[in-house]
């Protein structure tokens, strides 16, 4: 009899494509870097402080939760870091520290962990935090007020606020090129359109983001804004303005396609994206809030389980007719 080696027994398949959740999250961070670096270069140390503090707080909240509940450590998967980074990108550079502590608490604990952690969150964690903060602390997210001490060489009023308050006539002073290149007031990581698109395309090509959701969201925003604009151009801004301002682009590539709160089948993904885009413009144009992104996406997150029931019939499935 041959000498016995101890062999490892496991179930098939014995091959794996090597993907990991942590790898995916690190790629999301890399893709977000252009927009983040632009924000930091514009607003300086305070912006760096907000981003770094938000990431640190998010990881600490996750760590605290792991320790308190005696669960296995999940901070290594990068999910908390990404949540913190995205929340930081959605905030003005002047956000006070306690808003960040509270916001990351909402995102990590309320938005994700109480539902069971990664993969179980029905809502997008950073957006849930943003929505609750916007409702609770209007002043912090009033970008005109928050950024009043900055003069960066471009118009330092928040484009969407101008549109809401004074109509399309007030936004003629913004050139689309400036808006696209990040020469606009706003949150740290959501104004640099070019950077967000480059990062988003990178994620789509690497297969980390579902292109169906991103593109249909943008299409939803574009078409709805276009229809409003065509019906009354004196009252409603053009579609490109809506694409390049506020949270539209960061939402399209980093927030709407969040895995657990969005559908996985093809048609539901399209419906999900388009409706989120439509809702965004509806809120901006006729709703109460300056930017509709957090609310429209959270609303669609709620519809996600229902939407994902629209799926192709499995091959061989027996349909029982009543």
């Amino acid at each position: 009899m041959s000498s016995q080696q101890k062999l490892v027994v496991a179930h098939a398949p014995y091959w794996h494509d090597g993907s990991k959740i942590s790898t995916k999250n690190y790629h999301v961070i890399i893709a977000a870097l252009p927009a983040v670096l632009m924000g930091i270069s514009q607003y300086g140390t305070p912006a760096l402080g907000v981003i770094a503090f938000a990431m640190a707080c998010a990881v600490i909240w996750e760590l605290v939760w792991n320790l308190v509940l005696g669960k296995s450590m999940s901070i290594g998967d990068g999910s908390a870091v990404v949540t913190g980074l995205l929340l930081g990108m959605l905030m003005p550079a002047t956000a006070p520290w306690w808003v960040i502590v509270l916001g990351t608490f909402i995102a990590i604990i309320v938005g994700k962990q109480i539902f069971g952690g990664i993969g179980f969150n029905p809502l997008n964690p950073p957006l849930l935090a943003l929505a609750m903060l916007v409702i609770s602390f209007k002043g912090v997210f009033d970008f005109d007020e928050a950024l009043r001490h900055y003069d960066l060489g471009f118009i330092m009023t928040y484009p969407l606020a101008d549109l809401k308050a004074f109509g399309p006539a007030a936004i003629e002073k913004f050139s689309l090129g400036d808006l696209f290149m990040g020469r606009q007031a706003g949150a740290i990581g959501s104004t640099f359109g070019l950077g967000l698109i480059v990062g988003g395309l990178y994620l789509i090509l690497r297969g980390y983001v579902r292109w169906e959701i991103s593109l249909s969201f943008l299409a939803g925003v574009f078409i709805t804004a276009l229809l409003f604009n065509l019906s009354d151009s004196a009252k409603y801004a053009g579609p490109l303005f809506h694409l390049f301002t506020g949270y539209t682009l960061i939402a399209a590539f980093f927030l709407v396609p969040e895995d657990s709160s969005s559908p996985a089948n093809f048609i539901p993904m399209l419906i999900f994206g388009v409706l989120a885009g439509v809702m965004t413009v509806l809120i901006r144009n006729i709703g109460a809030y300056v930017d509709g992104v957090p609310f429209s996406i959270l609303l669609m997150n709620l519809a996600n389980p229902l939407l994902d029931k629209i799926r192709p019939k499995a091959i061989g499935k027996v349909v029982e007719n009543a």
Binding site: V8, A10, H11, P13, Y14, W15, H16, S19, I21, K24, D77, G116, G117, I118, G119, F120, R210, D259, S260, S262, P263, A264, N265
Partner: peptide, 16 residues
């Protein structure tokens, strides 16, 4: 060899 984990599904949809 592929190492299985007990991590939950994150609903990325690759399998679908």
């Amino acid at each position: 060899s592929a190492q299985a984990t007990d991590y939950p599904c994150i609903n990325c949809g690759e399998c679908v």
